[in-house]
């Protein structure tokens, strides 16, 4: 997937600012071209250091916003404070239970709130797994 540098930088900055909690957001774009990375509130109330949830109402709002710009929701991002920048088993099981085929996920590993490393993945229903995806920051 491709993402403009300005959007990628803002996404990582947001993950650092949100540390030690998980932050999350939505990618609006077309196909593998992300045009905007829109931060949304982490609605997880019980364990926001290790879990995130995006409110369906936020998704409906962003889907509508995107349509007005000729864009659609093509993926999501979330951070892993002090954990590796790769999807967890929790991430995989949620994706497997829902509508995630072909959807991009960026996971941002955040070390001590200082350094953020984004990695990209795409979920495939065929084998119910995330696959590493080249992340092109342009």
């Amino acid at each position: 997937m491709r993402i403009p540098r300005q959007e990628a930088d803002a996404m990582v900055a947001r993950a650092l600012e949100g540390y030690p909690f998980e932050v999350c957001g939505v990618f609006l774009g077309r196909g593998g071209d992300v045009r905007r990375a829109v931060g949304v509130a982490n609605r997880e109330t019980e364990r926001p250091r290790v879990r995130y949830q995006i409110a369906p109402a936020d998704l409906i709002r962003l889907q509508r916003e995107g349509e007005a710009e000729g864009l659609e929701i093509v993926g999501y991002y979330h951070s892993h404070p002090d954990h590796p920048a790769r999807p967890s088993e929790t991430d995989r099981s949620v994706a497997a239970g829902g509508l995630s085929d072909g959807v991009f996920h960026v996971v941002i590993g955040v070390e001590q709130g200082i350094r953020g490393t984004p990695t990209a993945w795409v979920f495939r229903d065929a084998d119910q797994a995330f696959h590493a995806e080249p992340l092109e920051i342009e």
């Binding site: 998980e22 999350c24 997880e44 364990r47 290790v50 879990r51 995130y52 949830q53 995006i54 369906p56 998704l59 409906i60 889907q63 999501y76 979330h78 892993h80 954990h83 999807p87 967890s88 929790t90 991430d91 949620v94 994706a95 829902g98 509508l99 995630s100 959807v103």
Partner: peptide, 28 residues
């Protein structure tokens, strides 16, 4: 959310707009 409208029995009428949305969640 249809979970608060009767689930699968939630009534629909002409002109309603239905949105199917994935629940996006996860974590460590």
């Amino acid at each position: 959310d249809v979970r608060f409208l009767g689930g699968k029995a939630a009534p629909l009428k002409a002109g309603d707009v239905v949105a199917i949305v994935p629940a996006i969640a996860g974590g460590l």
